[in-house]
Amino acid sequence: MPNQKTLEGVDGLKAVLGQQLGASEWKELAYEDIVRFAEATGDFQWIHVDRERCKRESPFGVPIAHGYFSVSRIAGLFFEIIDVRGFGLVLNYGLNKVRFPAPLKLGARYRLTLKLAELKDLPKGVEALLLANIEVEGEAKPACSAEVVYRFMLA
């Protein structure tokens, strides 16, 4: 990845504590992405998959991604932003807080931004609290804002 930040071990993480880590490449939300997510989750609510009804009845005019699609993109785009080395395992440990302030509309471009907010020592590694946002190009509010917790475990 061209703008990927390399972080080497615990010291590399500590060096960027409190900093913005960067942004992923822009992605465009395709209808097929929405449908595949609906198929995977069984959530076929019309506001996501029915283009004609969205034109007629939705305040957005087009289908929108599921909120959980937006949050799921965090894990998928995480390693576009950082290349973490010196650990045996990196675990997505969970979420503390998730909000969906704005819709992610069909055809919109979006990306992930990350900030390392906290680090806690663990017996065999560190736990990191990252502030993650799925930004939407040209929009003031993100489609998803989440506190994500990762555990970086030493080999």
Rank of each mutant, 00 (worst) to 15 (best):
N92K: 02
A117R: 15
A75M: 13
L131D: 10
L106H: 00
E118I: 03
I134A: 01
R73W: 15
L114A: 07
L116D: 12
F78M: 13
H66Y: 05
L89I: 08
G107P: 00
A75P: 13
C144L: 11
Y93F: 11
A65S: 12
P142Y: 05
F78Y: 08
I82L: 04
R99A: 14
K141H: 15
L112F: 04
L95P: 07
L114M: 02
K120W: 09
G107W: 02
A146M: 05
L114H: 07
H66V: 01
P142K: 04
V84M: 01
L106S: 01
R99F: 02
A140K: 14
G88F: 03
G125K: 03
A146H: 04
D83P: 00
E135V: 09
A117D: 14
A102E: 05
N133G: 14
S145G: 08
L77V: 11
L129D: 05
K141S: 15
T113I: 13
F78I: 10
R111E: 02
A143T: 06
L104R: 12
R85Q: 14
L95R: 08
S145E: 15
I81C: 01
G76K: 13
N96G: 11
G125L: 01
Y150A: 09
L122M: 10
L131W: 04
V126T: 06
E147M: 10
P63I: 03
G125Y: 01
F100A: 14
G107S: 03
A132F: 12
V148S: 13
I134T: 11
T113L: 07
Y150C: 09
L77D: 07
L77N: 08
L104E: 10
Y68L: 15
A102H: 13
L114S: 06
L95V: 15
A65D: 03
P142S: 09
A75S: 15
I74T: 11
V62Q: 00
I82T: 05
N92I: 08
D83M: 06
F69S: 00
V126K: 08
E127H: 02
L129S: 10
R73E: 12
E80N: 04
A128V: 08
L119C: 01
S145F: 03
S145R: 15
A128Y: 06
E147Y: 07
F69A: 03
L116Q: 03
P123L: 07
E118H: 06
V62P: 00
A117C: 12
L77P: 11
V98K: 12
